[in-house]
Design a protein around this nucleic acid. Structure first.
Lengths: 259, 259
DNA sequence: ACATAAATCCCTAAAAATGAGATTATTGTT
DNA sequence: AACAATAATCTCATTTTTAGGGATTTATGT
């Protein structure tokens, strides 16, 4: 089904790709169907992946992701410069406002929350650590898109034109592009209830060393808690956090990784 | 260095194995040395793993684990029956006592915390989610070992004889075995400062369907907060939690996975 | 004990992996 | 800005795996 011809590592890893929020469990039969692998081949892959701890099979049920994932996640939290440098800024933000603060990383056409802190009991924001977020809507997505170079940006706009139009960013690619230019000039993005109804998102980009942002720092806060002035104040802090994290990242870069 | 001959999936996945808490970052050069792969081969693997999001490379630094790990961890949290069923029991325990409550899973010769809750500000216990725990010491390890069948147990005792002796479980394999039998009869394990000084651990096994426990539920609590009676009380709750989680797991098993 | 389904084994043609060495990017330096 | 040093990629012939049909074994349920 998928065309992963000729590369047994890739073919094996493709199995990990089929797990998603709506499909947390797969039987060998289903995997054969989905991936088009023959029975013995599939079983060979599954065996290897299970031995590596990446998959886990419980008798009656099918296969799920395995405990090695938990271990790797722990290691990642200890090694990801973005998380390590960003955490304290998230703390600052949640201490100052009744909000959820997120670090969202861009990778391979997606954006993904990698760290979050919150100072409100019932978080209306529905994107905990690890859940991929929509690309076409929300302050975070926009704070990343707006700062991309035109070459990367235009195709992305085209891909998400429908969403972008529906939130009123413009009806043509050029109009959207212009809207995003304004976001870029402002240095941050604000969204009112685009992702979660009633929740305001305020996001600013984080840079690594290059021209394109690698991540976004974002505050989500209940709409009824804030007015225009509050948003101005918060966004100043969010931008500041974005700048400081960026600086920390590029410093680390220069000196080579430290410790 | 490692003998992973003839299996490119295995060889590729072996790269993920070298990441550890003391070694969060690897350069290609180091990986070649460690794994004994040729330069082009290694780079091919790295490319594939990076494309899959499992690795991430930042220019100046080497390779680290990648964002896909975060995503998979999110999915795992949503699909692991142990976590799903156990979470509320952890909550119960932390609400009742000023403690940290853990779920620890056994896999491939290791034990690994997969979920934790805490009701104390500064957690003395040093094993957050994802960090592999020592096998030879601590209530958790013992609550898992004690319930293994002799065949599996004896070699494990031998492997960890040094630790086991140092905590006073016995000087010979037979003596340790007898001590563990007593733990089994009691139905739970208690440890005083074996893993973290000043911290008491109380753990009970969790079963899946078979004879050997698949996990352990554990409470760690500051030693100065508890006396003998408290420990009796807590351990009753911990055992109860273990039983209830086990029951939930085997029910799910019988009916096939539900959700 | 028996039937049914699930997982593994066996095998060889066909395809992919491998690595030495050359080549090309990338980065840092004067 | 040219250059040196390093890092990453490419080429290609050879060797090694891989893949998958079909048979077989093992597990599972009745």
């Amino acid at each position: 089904m998928t065309e992963n011809a000729g590369n047994s590592l890739k073919r094996g890893l493709a199995i990990l790709e089929v797990f998603s929020e709506d499909r947390l469990e797969w039987t060998p039969e289903e995997l054969m169907e989905k991936l088009g692998y023959s029975r013995p081949t599939l079983y060979r892959y599954l065996k290897t992946l299970r031995e590596a701890g990446l998959l886990s099979s419980s008798a009656n049920a099918g296969f799920t992701l395995g405990p090695k994932v938990v271990e790797m996640d722990f290691l990642l939290r200890k090694s990801d410069a973005l998380i390590l440098n960003g955490q304290k800024h998230l703390k600052n933000l949640t201490e100052r406002y009744a909000c959820t603060a997120l670090l969202v990383r861009r990778y391979g056409g997606r954006i993904l929350c990698v760290a979050s802190e919150r100072s409100v009991a019932n978080p209306r924001s529905s994107y905990p650590r690890g859940r991929p977020m929509p690309l076409g809507r929300g302050a975070i997505a926009r704070s990343l898109m707006a700062f991309l170079p035109r070459r990367q940006l235009v195709p992305m706009i085209e891909r998400h034109m429908e969403d972008l139009r529906s939130i009123g960013l413009g009806n043509t690619v050029e109009e959207v592009y212009e809207s995003l230019r304004r976001v870029k000039r402002a240095g941050y993005a604000v969204a009112f209830g685009e992702v979660t109804p009633g929740v305001v998102g305020i996001a600013a980009p984080v840079y690594d060393a290059g021209r394109s942002p690698v991540a976004s720092v974002c505050v989500t806060i209940a709409g009824h808690l804030v007015n225009g002035n509050d948003i101005d104040e918060i966004s100043a802090h969010v931008r500041q956090a974005g700048r400081e994290i960026s600086e920390a990242l590029s410093l680390e870069r220069e000196n080579g990784k430290v410790g």
